[in-house]
Design a protein around this nucleic acid. Structure first.
Length: 153
DNA sequence: GCCAACGTTGGC
DNA sequence: GCCAACGTTGGC
């Protein structure tokens, strides 16, 4: 089982909304590295740190898990969507998404600022300068450390 | 295949 | 709102 961090802008799709709706297809990813994680590495049951980016404050809002493996992202064929990709072919879609489901709340939000202060997380990708990737692998140690922070008051 | 220009991300 | 860092595009 692998561990991941997935970024979402809470104004677009918050952890609270995931909790309410139960699950969602993670569509709109238009970055090859992030796509490859979804199509090659993610498996149902993998655990996810649900991260709020462009938020006040940014940080890990809760825990989710991968529900279904990757399938073609419908938005790439929707000419009215912001995520429309005219170059993508129906018989060989460029973009995929996975289904993500709510798993559990944290007792407390784990702010980016606190991730940065934790020496055990100094190598975590999300705290590295200029790291924009919207889906990032997380080591089991990092995942458990964040979980521990989130379960403390 | 190089690389400048451009658009986007996302913390601050 | 600013802007550094990064990915993508397209001219050559």
């Amino acid at each position: 089982m692998k561990h991941w961090l997935m970024k979402s802008e809470p104004e677009e799709f918050s952890f609270e909304r995931l909790k309410k709706e139960g699950s969602t297809w993670w569509d709109g990813v238009r970055n090859y590295q992030a796509r490859n994680f979804m199509t090659k590495d993610m498996k149902p049951g993998d655990l996810v740190l649900f991260y709020h980016s462009n938020a006040e404050p940014p940080g890990v809002a809760g825990i989710a898990k991968i529900k279904s493996k990757a399938r073609p992202d419908a938005l790439q064929f929707d000419a009215k969507s912001d995520y429309f990709d005219p170059k993508s072919k129906k018989d060989n879609p460029t973009w995929h998404s996975v289904e993500v489901s709510y798993l559990e709340d944290l007792k407390s939000f784990v702010a980016l600022e606190d991730l940065k202060k934790n020496p055990n997380l100094k190598d975590m990708l999300v705290i590295q300068r200029g790291q924009r990737l919207s889906i990032q692998p997380v080591t089991p140690q990092e995942f458990n450390e964040v979980l521990k922070m989130g379960k403390a008051k």
